[in-house]
């Protein structure tokens, strides 16, 4: 029987460790925003990985940076090819080392924030964009930020409040067909968050403020 879950609940390093220590032969499939990654285990060693366009060790390093995504572990599935010859513990250490090194990068600051945001019940995705609407980082790669034209929305809301110009815009909450969209200025950028429709903005805003460091 396949083991199914989400990386929000079990981190990838733990999954790799588990399969290797159990000397498993298995295929681990990870899916996030329609993009698939695969890690193959053979007798407790990581022997092959794919994460488009990466193969081998680089694919594992890229997959280690994922903070959410659905996964499935299927036992007794052998790799189509061997691309990794490094011992699993060294591979994992190197991967974690690379992640640590990236910690000062802006991207990683965003991802740490996303990690905190995704622990809030009802939040399904988050992304940061600049004032022109160009996506800088996001939990999903396929967020339709262009289609939603969020900078235009923010501009309209700022103009709308001109009679009350002494006020600073904090949040925009919009109830749409299937979801709620929360938008907030984030330094010089814009943070957008999608929520399950049933989640009320006033419930989630204090938690979001905490997660993004506004309080």
């Amino acid at each position: 029987m396949a083991l199914i879950g989400n990386l929000k609940d079990i981190k990838l390093p733990s999954l790799i460790q588990l399969n290797c220590m159990e000397h498993n032969t298995a295929k681990l499939t990870i899916e996030r925003a329609g993009k698939f990654g695969f890690i193959y285990f053979e007798n407790g060693q990581v022997t092959h990985a794919e994460y488009d366009p990466f193969l081998g060790e680089e694919a594992v390093y890229r997959l280690l940076s994922l903070i959410d995504g659905r996964f499935k572990v299927e036992s007794d599935v052998r790799p189509p090819v061997r691309t990794i010859h490094t011992n699993w513990s060294n591979l994992l250490l190197e991967g974690m080392h690379k992640l640590d090194h990236a910690q000062d990068d802006a991207d990683n600051i965003y991802f740490q924030m996303f990690e905190r945001l995704l622990t809030i019940r009802g939040i399904t995705s988050a992304w940061v964009m600049n004032a022109n609407g160009e996506m800088l980082a996001g939990t999903d790669t396929e967020v339709p930020e262009r289609a939603l034209n969020i900078p235009f929305i923010v501009l309209q809301v700022k103009r709308l409040a001109e009679p009350y110009a002494d006020n600073r815009l904090e949040f925009i909450s919009m109830l749409l067909n299937n979801a709620r969209l929360l938008i907030t200025p984030y330094h010089n950028e814009i943070l957008a968050i999608t929520l399950e429709k049933k989640v009320k903005s006033d419930t989630v805003i204090p938690l979001v403020k905490q997660a993004v460091g506004k309080i």
């Binding site: 339709p144 289609a147 939603l148 034209n149 809301v157 709308l160 409040a161 009350y164 006020n167 600073r168 815009l169 904090e170 949040f171 925009i172 909450s173 919009m174 109830l175 749409l176 067909n177 903005s201 805003i205």
Partner: peptide
């Protein structure tokens, strides 16, 4: 963009 907006809430500091 195919979304129906039925409610909008705008939060400022004291507004």
């Amino acid at each position: 963009s195919g979304n129906k907006l039925s409610e909008i809430e705008l939060y400022w500091n004291h507004l």
